[in-house]
Design a protein around this nucleic acid. Structure first.
Length: 746
DNA sequence: ATGGACAATGTTTTT
DNA sequence: CATTGTCCAT
């Protein structure tokens, strides 16, 4: 295959660039993955660089797998030895190799956020601090932030009492990690950065080895990641980074798009290449995206253009509430599918927060339409999965007390809290990990540890210790699947988890799914399997093969593309999220999030918001997203919302109403008969609309107590109320209900 | 030790 | 409202 095929001028100059530092500013859909993969292929295939001397890092396994696949398409076996993976996985691999420099052993486990919280709770307990006053969640965020900024506990800034508290928790938390021979996500980056920073000979070794370092989604790197990249590229200075500051949406995770500026300062010789031509979306979609993002300050403006043509206008739909939003989505999908305008797999529904997926899922279920949900939590967060994984982790690393605590009494084997505490105390006095004590008790009849316990607890502990001793003897040689089967079998886990209910059957099926995954690791072994399980991302759970609509958060959508995209919940408080109201920088990130969502769409884009939203329990009126008013009306095609006529509908009622039929028929995209075979649709008569009673016809001037003077652009009756689009001189376009806004006619 | 019943309490985004 | 924690009876 031609290594330089299908490239435009800018892409080609990036792929063929002379060695050195290079910054590729890549707009959405501008072919950055293509540039990265062809750059790698070019270096190996045409420049003759050994794959062994190339390092490429991404943020998700999916991105890494995709790149690997494409590199192989070009090079086949010639690419063997290439280091290509996520930041976290790559660091984990190197750290295991260089474990002698670390405070943990090479078989360390990687704790996920659940485990991390458990450990923070333990730290609070140890320090006699109240969990209510010091929320583990927020402490975790503080600790994580510190780690991302490469601050160790002793370097943690302590300006006030609370900081000192956090510092102590951080200190203790770190001690606990070490005691468990565990690292958290942040440690992987932190340890790697420190390793390179503090050991010149190690730094030299890797910096010399990696002649070329390539980075995807560079705008999402945090301080730790930037530091380790800088060190890795310190010898050859061939650092090829691709990114787009406008798509930086992980600030809360420590990502700092100013790393782009830092890069330019640290590598002043760096060439900059701008990729503006978009190969994904229609011009209408790009224009909408640019209108939204252009309101952000301090950015390098990109002019996105396409040769795909204008395309159709952006669908704008105002729903009555979030259930209505979901119904609109489902019905539109059903309708377009029915007309063969799209296939189910061409659709994605995006939202700000995971909680929004519920209503959508319900709507799909009711319509009898399949869907898939992107989210690691869905599988790896499940109890049964965590149980089994904890067993395996414990067997891999007996010092993992978090996993021991999780499984010691699952299934119930008469080892309760009291016994556990006694075991823990005894073990810590003996200078051993609790599981090590157990193994000894199980193994040796004469074990002195046995004398420390009595009665029921002794028997229970010895029994469990016996099991542990057997398994951990096998852990080193047996492939993950066989080890897992032993555990499942000897704990009678099936009987425990599958209680005969639907849920139980479901849970057991999940275990079987995990078995299937374990089977793939027969050659690579337990450590690799556990690492894979720890480092899956939400996106990685996306199965591109299933041809059904995808439900996902805007964050998870980054890097993906779909023909038809719905963005739902475009209301102030949701997008932008209410937590972002105080800080301008956070508000800018919300805007970028919407920008990312919009630019995922190839052909059709629907923006959906609602009048009411149930946050928890009951519904409240909400404002449309402030970002919506930044999109010029000319780009929009408002889809009339017949469904929201006069009715606070109750749950379960009117669900299958297909008011949309009338709705969509008027819209440009849908027409004709849209009854779909699989979905029930008892047509229910819609409540007669209230007779028009307009107080503020279009053109009238009004005064609002907060927003000041404005002009009514549009007025229509809805749910017995008058809905007005008003252009206020001070705040721009607002949509209000006449009954709620204290409007005054002028 | 275990499981059930009730109360309180809480919601961004994720490697 | 929906999950999670806490208390209490078995």
């Amino acid at each position: 295959m031609d290594l330089l095929a299908n490239l435009n001028t800018q892409q080609r100059s990036a792929v063929q660039a002379e060695p050195g530092a290079l910054l590729v500013l890549a707009g959405p859909g501008s072919g950055k993955t293509r540039v990265l993969t062809q750059r790698i292929a070019y270096l190996i295939g045409m420049v003759g660089v050994s794959p062994y001397r190339i390092l490429a890092v991404t943020f998700t396994n999916k991105a890494a797998d995709e790149m690997m696949r494409r590199v192989q398409d070009f090079l086949g076996d010639q690419g063997r030895g290439l280091t290509l993976g996520t930041f976290h996985a790559t660091c984990a691999k190197i750290l295991r190799r260089e474990a002698e420099y670390l405070p943990v052993d090479a078989n360390f486990v990687i704790y996920d956020s659940d485990d991390q919280l458990t450990l923070i709770r333990r730290a609070l307990e140890d320090l006699n601090l109240d969990e209510k006053k010091n929320r583990p969640q927020s402490l975790h965020a503080q600790i994580s932030k510190a780690k991302n900024e490469l601050l160790r506990p002793d370097q943690y800034p302590t300006n006030d009492f609370r900081d000192r508290m956090a510092q102590r928790v951080y200190q203790r938390y770190q001690e606990l990690l070490l005691a468990n021979n565990a690292v958290d996500f942040d440690d992987l980056l932190l340890y790697m950065a420190n390793l390179l920073e503090e050991n010149p000979q190690v730094r030299e070794q890797y910096a010399r080895r990696f002649e070329h370092v390539l980075v995807d989604e560079f705008q999402d790197t945090n301080m730790a990641q930037y530091t380790l990249l800088r060190h890795l590229a310190s010898y050859h200075r061939n650092l090829f980074v691709v990114g787009d500051a406008d798509q930086s949406i992980y600030r809360w995770r420590g990502a700092d798009y100013r790393n782009v500026q830092r890069f330019q300062k640290d590598f002043p010789e760096a060439k900059v290449i701008l990729l503006e031509q978009n190969y994904r979306s229609t011009q209408a979609i790009l224009d909408t995206a640019m209108q939204v993002i252009d309101r952000n300050p301090d950015r390098i403006r990109k002019n996105l253009f396409t040769e795909r043509g204008a395309g159709q206008r952006i669908g704008l739909y105002e729903a009555y509430d979030d259930r209505d939003e979901a119904a609109f989505v489902v019905n539109t999908i059903a309708s377009l599918t029915k007309q063969n305008l799209a296939r189910p797999g061409d659709f994605a529904v995006m939202y700000r927060i995971n909680a929004q997926s519920r209503v959508l899922e319900e709507a799909f279920l009711h319509a009898g339409l399949p869907y898939k949900l992107v989210g690691a939590q869905r599988f790896y967060g499940r109890r049964e999965i965590k149980d089994i994984v904890s067993y395996l982790r414990l067997l891999h690393n007996l010092r993992d007390e978090v996993s021991l605590t999780r499984v010691i009494n699952v299934p119930a084997r008469k080892i309760g809290d009291k016994t556990l505490v006694a075991l823990r105390t005894y073990a810590s006095n003996a200078g051993l990990a609790p599981a090590e004590v157990l193994v000894e008790m199980g193994q040796e009849r004469q074990s002195p540890h046995r004398t420390a316990f009595s009665g029921q607890s002794l028997g229970a502990l010895v029994n469990f210790g016996y099991l542990l001793a057997n398994w951990s003897g096998l852990a080193a040689h047996l492939p993950p699947l066989q080890l897992m089967d032993r555990v499942l079998d000897e704990t009678d886990y099936h009987a425990y988890i599958d209680d005969g209910t639907d849920e139980g059957r479901d849970r057991w099926e999940n275990v079987m799914e995990l078995r299937r995954l374990a089977a793939e690791y027969a050659d690579q072994g337990l450590a690799a399997f556990l690492e894979r399980v720890s480092l899956v991302s939400d996106q990685d759970t996306l199965d591109a093969s299933a041809s059904v609509p995808t439900l996902l958060t805007l964050h998870a959508a980054k890097g993906l593309e779909f023909s038809n995209v719905f963005i739902v919940g475009l209301n102030d408080g949701v997008l932008p999220h209410s937590r972002s109201f105080d800080e301008p920088e956070e508000m800018h990130e919300e805007r970028r999030l919407l920008y990312v969502g919009i630019t995922r769409a190839r052909d059709r884009l629907y923006l959906v918001y609602s009048q009411n939203r149930s946050q928890y329990g009951y519904a409240e009126p909400v404002e449309p997203s402030r970002f919506l008013s930044d999109v010029p009306e000319g780009l929009l095609q408002t889809i009339p919302s017949a469904a929201s006529q006069a009715r606070p509908r109750r749950r379960r009622e009117n669900w299958d109403d297909d008011d949309w039929d009338r709705t969509s028929r008027k819209s440009s995209s849908a027409a004709g008969d849209r009854s779909y075979a699989s979905a029930p649709r008892p047509a229910k008569p819609v409540t007669t609309p209230a007779p028009p009673d307009r107080q503020f016809p279009a053109g009238s001037k009004v005064n609002h107590p907060v927003w000041g003077e404005g002009m009514v652009l549009n007025s229509r009756m809805d749910a017995g109320d008058e809905l007005l689009d008003i252009y206020f001189q001070q705040v721009g376009l607002k949509r209000v209900a006449a009954s709620l806004a204290r409007l005054e006619k002028m």
